[in-house]
Simulated assay, not measured.
Amino acid sequence: MRNTNRWLLAALLAALLVGATWYCVSVWQAAPSMPLYGNIILGAAAILVLVSGCGLIALIFYSRRKGYDEPARSNRTQRQ
């Protein structure tokens, strides 16, 4: 029963992927072409987003290795 549910879920998700891809391609083909400066701006924005995302992920790994993500601790004894 459990494997059947997984196959049904996988089939449903695959059908949704095919439908979304078909819709995106049909809209893309129906739209007028973009001028050259638009393609340049779009490419530059994509590169900037990719570089900033990679940089943020690198900072996450760096801070984790250096111990900056550890909870704050104190060596002092508590007052009574």
Score class of each variant (00 low, 15 high):
2 R>C: 03
3 N>A: 12
6 R>E: 05
6 R>P: 00
7 W>I: 08
8 L>A: 11
10 A>D: 08
11 A>V: 07
11 A>H: 04
12 L>Y: 02
13 L>A: 10
14 A>S: 15
14 A>W: 01
15 A>C: 13
17 L>F: 09
17 L>V: 04
18 V>C: 09
18 V>Q: 02
19 G>V: 00
19 G>H: 01
20 A>N: 10
23 Y>P: 00
24 C>A: 14
25 V>S: 00
25 V>Y: 01
26 S>E: 10
29 Q>V: 02
30 A>L: 06
30 A>S: 15
32 P>F: 03
32 P>I: 04
33 S>I: 03
34 M>S: 11
34 M>K: 14
35 P>W: 06
37 Y>A: 11
38 G>D: 12
39 N>Q: 14
40 I>V: 15
40 I>F: 12
41 I>P: 00
41 I>D: 07
44 A>V: 12
44 A>Y: 11
45 A>Y: 11
48 L>Q: 08
48 L>K: 05
49 V>P: 01
50 L>N: 07
50 L>W: 06
50 L>P: 00
51 V>D: 02
52 S>A: 11
52 S>Q: 14
53 G>C: 09
55 G>A: 14
55 G>V: 07
56 L>W: 10
58 A>V: 05
61 F>M: 06
62 Y>K: 05
62 Y>M: 14
65 R>L: 07
66 K>Q: 13
67 G>W: 04
69 D>F: 07
70 E>S: 09
70 E>F: 04
70 E>C: 03
72 A>L: 10
73 R>C: 02
73 R>W: 04
74 S>D: 10
74 S>H: 05
74 S>R: 08
75 N>W: 05
75 N>K: 07
77 T>V: 13
77 T>K: 10
78 Q>P: 01
